[in-house]
């Protein structure tokens, strides 16, 4: 790491010298940098404000929320929590959501990598047709598939279980598409050839060579998959019946009282409880991914 940075620095220094000689406008590096940071921070604030509002609203009473937005926290957080817990056991929902989302993420990550690798590095009959067909299927709007999906689950006897929420993740066309695109740019076939000559089996090559190279892409997609599954509302709503199996977004529905007098404060608290852990995990995971990328590139 250290060695690398030193090389970079010396490189960029030499370039700075060069550009100072060759290009006319002589700029100090720090001024555009400050400018860039300012812009980035303004953008960050714009992105953060609604999030903050959500957190603030979690501490405010229903009437206070209805009378408008503010960034000053209220004092109703304990009441909101009590109201919420009198309707739902949010921690049970948390556990259910976590189980589903983790399994979905793992399934989707592994099988998509498998499929993407299959599409990218083998030549077989019907390959292109199948790939195109997969892409084409992504274009049919899903809203109408719901009734058919329900019928299917009924016939398979898997209603009110997590199976219809988890297993379909093994077929995620978007992730397959992305991973295929990614591995085409990053993995050179000669690497596979070399491994074959060393006598490695096809699945071993996949597990020891392809997966590590795809890891940053898998991790990126995993974040999206996890969040998508975590926030998924309509599927668990339709498929699950037993309240003890409900996921977080479905439980949020319980909090909506009548149309007019909603328990807005507790809803925001519920949403905040469900979002903040993802946020934190994302912040850490995201850093981790960056590190693993640079770590990987040093070795080669």
């Amino acid at each position: 790491m250290i060695g690398k940075t030193a090389v970079d620095n010396s490189l960029s220094n030499s370039v700075e010298k060069k550009s100072a000689i060759e290009t006319k406008p002589k700029r100090k590096v720090s001024i555009p940098k400050i400018l860039i940071y300012t812009v980035l921070i303004v953008m960050a604030i714009v992105c953060f404000i609604p999030f903050l509002m959500m957190l603030v609203n979690a501490t405010r009473s229903n009437e206070a929320i209805l009378s408008g937005f503010t960034l000053l926290p209220g004092s109703a957080i304990v009441e909101n929590y009590q109201t919420m817990m009198s309707y739902i056991n949010i921690w049970a929902g948390f556990k259910n959501s976590l189980i589903i989302s983790v399994l979905v993420t793992l399934l989707s990550g592994y099988f998509s990598a498998l499929t993407a690798y299959g599409f990218a590095f083998y030549v077989f009959k019907g390959k292109n047709a199948m790939f195109v067909f997969m892409l084409v299927m992504m274009m049919v709007p899903g809203q109408l598939g719901l009734i058919g999906f329900y019928e299917l689950c009924k016939n398979l006897g898997i209603l009110d279980t997590y199976i219809p929420l988890i297993i379909p993740a093994a077929a995620s066309p978007f992730v397959v598409f992305f991973l295929r695109q990614y591995i085409l740019t990053t993995l050179h076939p000669s690497l596979i050839e070399a491994a074959r000559i060393d006598g490695a089996s096809e699945f071993k090559i996949f597990h020891t060579i392809a997966i590590p190279i795809m890891m940053p892409a898998i991790a990126t997609m995993s974040i999206f998959t996890f969040i998508g599954s975590w926030n998924n509302y309509i599927m668990p709503l339709v498929v699950l019946f037993s309240p003890e199996k409900f996921t977080l977004p479905v439980l949020m529905g319980f909090l909506k009282g009548s149309q007019v007098a909603q328990n807005l404060g507790s809803m925001y608290l519920g949403i905040a409880i469900s979002v903040v852990p993802i946020m934190v995990a994302f912040l850490f995971l995201s850093k981790y991914i960056v590190n693993s990328i640079s770590a990987g590139s040093i070795k080669e």
Partner: peptide, 19 residues
């Protein structure tokens, strides 16, 4: 290649294409 893409297609056929 077929082994690699088989699990995907199995699930895809049942849960996506049928509906």
């Amino acid at each position: 290649g077929y082994f690699f893409i088989a699990p995907f297609w199995l699930v895809f056929l049942v849960f996506s294409i049928y509906p």
